[in-house]
Design a protein around this nucleic acid. Structure first.
Lengths: 228, 228
DNA sequence: TTATTGTAGATTGGATCCAATATTGTTAGG
DNA sequence: CCTAACAATATTGGATCCAATCTACAATAA
């Protein structure tokens, strides 16, 4: 039954899911892998991790299972789990798919965007432009994209996009701490916001497509030409 | 008591044969959900499943975790897991994404297709046309698409497509056992093969796009207009 | 020397037990 | 008759122990 509506602020906060040891370990490890704190190939030993988290091996095992299902780790029976690496070809594929999907998402999002949402996006756009660390960069970039995408109401597309972000973020970070080739991205972001304000869905979609293709290109020329 | 006997299929499946218990349980449950043997909302009780598979609850728990990560079940802490249902909106989204991706995949696959691969696809095309059960239908359909897609060498795209197939197959089956609206699909498949032989990548890609959109439309008009 | 075999340690996979929590049914009180 | 507190039961979450398997390294024989 619908309880008093004055509590609707808490929509989406699920305490019961937050508490389990498995979830905490899972989220922590996931973040560590995404950010690159745990580098490709790092072995994830259950006993060792159990000590670090002060739990038994059970929640560790479940976390590793879930991480494997998301493609972030690779395990071999009786041998152990390591942080999964990603091939150059897969990076290309993921960016190509991102470009394709983000174009489509923008097409649907722009007509629905409220002024507030655009303002929020612009805020992240500015934060992005003045971000110092590669972590801030990827964070605000994700927030910016997310703010624009929300209006599309394409939850499945967004979940796929999120797994792509998760699996490529550490490489983006590595790139950005060497070359600061974010200048073009800043310009593109500003133009993107303008097109959104003008409700030019087709234009915004096409720019987003190119924007992702540009990001792909600059990442590829940074990555070692034969990375596995 | 009236225990749910929707799980009686698993009688006699024992772990001691090969592979890890978890993997066996996982694959078996996954197939049962995909095919619709286990219907939406069916509760997956750990103890009950443990008995059916003659193992402890541990492999069951791991399987349920992995299934949840793939979106096939939904669990609530201390409450249990149920086979996940899918909203009409998500079905639409998944088919839209399929159309988008399969067009792209065909575009890359056609130039690389060998005569052998096309022959194989045509074989499935014929099997598909004479398939009797909805299970045969979805099986050969998957094989046909897979045979054509292999030449694209787009492994990540294909993995995403596979999860989409996995999550929508049971609805397709349900549709096909009522309406046999596969006639149009048969025609489209034949034309598709011809375009592949003619190396008309653009044409094949566009037909594939339309083919998926048609499948979407006929599925949607079959599904209840307010399915959750 | 070299290949093979065997043993010890390390590491994951699975089973059983206990704890935490939700659900249901029951009872006391209004 | 209805509601709220409470006990009983069912079910999942986690810890500890044991089993299965892999890896390294040493010992032995050709």
């Amino acid at each position: 039954m619908a309880k008093s509506d004055s509590l609707h602020h808490f929509q989406g906060i699920d305490v019961s899911q937050a508490g389990s040891a498995s979830s905490i370990v899972f989220e922590t490890l996931k973040q560590a892998i995404i950010t690159g704190e745990l580098k490709d190939g790092t072995p994830l030993k259950q006993e060792e991790l159990a000590k670090k988290f002060s739990t038994s091996r059970i929640p560790i095992r479940e976390s590793i299972n879930r991480l494997e299902q998301e493609g972030l780790v690779k395990t071999i029976r009786y041998k152990g789990a390591v942080v999964a690496s990603i091939s150059l070809k897969e990076v290309e594929e993921m960016f190509d798919l991102r470009a394709l999907m983000e174009r489509e998402v923008m097409l649907k999002a722009v007509p629905n965007l409220t002024d507030d949402q655009i303002d929020e996006a612009e805020k992240y756009c500015l934060e992005f432009a003045s971000a110092k660390t590669s972590g801030d960069w990827t964070d605000t970039n994700r927030k910016l994209h997310h703010a624009l995408f929300q209006a599309s109401d394409m939850t499945f597309h967004l979940s796929v996009l999120n797994t792509i972000y998760d699996r490529t973020e550490r490489y983006l970070r590595a790139q950005l701490s060497f070359s600061n080739g974010a200048d073009r991205a800043v310009d593109e972001h500003h133009t993107l916001i303008e097109l959104c304000r003008a409700k030019d869905a087709a234009g915004a979609a096409e720019l987003m497509f190119q924007h992702v293709k540009h990001a792909k290109r600059s990442l590829l020329e940074f990555l070692p030409p034969d990375s596995k």
